[in-house]
C-alpha cells in the first residue's frame, strides 16, 4: 500500500479537477469534431450539456465512491436530478418549449429539487416555517436559473459566473467544514473551466437550456446541502448569491458604452465582477466563521 502522505491529496485533485476536466475536454472534442458535422447547429448546446452532465456524474462517483439508489442522504439526489433534467431540457433545446412552458417547467423542477433535498430539514420545522424556507429557496433558485437561461443562448457570461461562484462555494465549504462539498463545488468549477476553454474567445457550444439546467441544478444542490446540512453561514450564502448576479452591471455598463455585451470582454468582466463578492465571502469566512480551536 502506498502510504506516501501526498497520495490522498493527489487523489483529491484527480477526482476534483483532472478527471472532470478531461471528461469535458474529450467530450467536447468528440462532440464538436465529429457530431457537429452530422447534426444541425441547434444541437450544439446539447454537446455542452451532455459533457457537463457526464463530467459531474464522473466527479460525483469518484469523490463520493458510488451512486446510492434509492438516495440515502440529501446529497445523493444531486446526480439523479441533473441526470433527469438533462433529457427534459435537451428537448427544450431541440424543440423550443416557449417561455411560458419553460418557466413552469423550471418552477416545477426547483420545487421538486428543493423538496427532495430539504425533506429531512423541513420535517423538523413548524409548518409555516417549513413553507417559508421552501418558498424562499425555490424562489431564489428559480430566479437565478431564469436569469442564466436567458443569457445561455447568447453568450458564455453565465458559464463564467457559475464557475466563479462554484469555486467560491468550494472554498467556503472546505473552510466551514465540508471537504466533500468543497470537492463537488471544485469539480463543477473545473468542469465549467474546461467548457470555457473550449468556448474562448468565440463560443462554439453555448450552455443552452440543457447545459444551464445541469449546471444550475448541480450548484444549487451543493449550496443547499452546504447551507442546511453543513451550516454554511447565511451571510456567506447571501454573498455567493449576489455574485450570481455579476452579469447585470457588466451588461448594463457594456451596453451604455456601446460595446458588445456577449463578447470575450463581457466574459472577463463578468468573472471579475463575480469575484468581488466571492472573495469577500471567503475573507469573511476565514475571519469569522471557521470552527476555532479545540472543544
Amino acid at each position: 500500500m502506498n502510504l506516501f502522505p501526498s497520495a490522498v491529496m493527489t487523489s483529491l485533485l484527480l477526482q476534483t479537477v483532472a478527471w472532470p476536466m478531461l471528461v469535458v475536454m474529450s467530450g467536447l472534442a468528440m462532440g464538436l469534431g465529429i457530431l457537429r458535422r452530422m447534426a444541425s447547429p441547434g444541437t450544439l448546446p446539447l454537446i455542452s450539456a451532455l459533457t457537463i452532465c457526464a463530467a459531474m456524474l464522473t466527479a460525483y462517483h469518484l469523490i463520493y465512491g458510488k451512486f446510492t439508489l434509492p438516495p440515502l442522504q440529501a446529497l445523493d439526489w444531486m446526480p439523479l436530478l441533473i441526470a433527469a433534467a438533462l433529457p427534459v431540457y435537451a428537448m427544450d433545446d431541440l424543440f423550443d418549449f416557449g417561455a411560458a412552458t419553460r418557466f413552469v417547467l423550471m418552477a416545477a423542477t426547483v420545487v421538486l429539487a428543493a423538496v427532495l433535498l430539504l425533506r429531512p430539514v423541513l420535517g423538523q420545522l413548524p409548518l409555516m416555517h417549513a413553507a417559508w424556507v421552501l418558498t424562499a429557496v425555490s424562489g431564489l433558485w428559480l430566479a437565478a436559473w431564469v436569469y442564466f437561461d436567458r443569457h445561455a443562448l447568447h453568450n458564455a457570461n453565465s458559464g463564467m459566473t457559475l464557475l466563479v461562484v462554484s469555486a467560491g462555494t468550494a472554498i467556503v465549504s472546505v473552510l466551514t467544514g465540508s471537504t466533500l462539498l468543497g470537492q463537488l463545488g471544485g469539480a463543477l468549477a473545473a468542469v465549467l473551466g474546461a467548457w470555457l476553454l473550449w468556448n474562448w474567445p468565440r463560443p462554439h457550444a453555448l450552455l443552452g437550456h440543457s447545459g444551464t439546467a445541469v449546471a444550475v441544478l448541480a450548484l444549487g444542490c451543493v449550496m443547499l446541502v452546504g447551507r442546511f446540512y453543513s451550516a454554511t453561514p447565511l451571510r456567506i450564502n447571501a454573498l455567493l448569491l449576489v455574485a450570481l448576479a455579476a452579469n447585470v452591471p457588466v451588461t448594463y455598463l457594456l451596453r451604455r458604452s456601446g460595446r458588445n455585451p456577449d463578447g470575450p470582454l463581457a466574459v472577463v468582466l463578468t468573472g471579475a465582477a463575480a469575484l468581488v463578492p466571492v472573495a469577500l465571502a471567503v475573507v469573511l469566512t476565514v475571519m469569522f466563521y471557521m470552527p476555532q480551536g479545540d472543544e
Partner: peptide, 16 residues
C-alpha cells in the same frame, strides 16, 4: 477534541 474535525464529521461528508 478538534472543532473543525467535529463539524466535518457531523456534516454530509460523514454522519450527516
Amino acid at each position: 477534541n478538534f472543532a473543525q474535525r467535529n463539524k466535518d464529521l457531523l456534516g454530509p461528508d460523514y454522519f450527516n
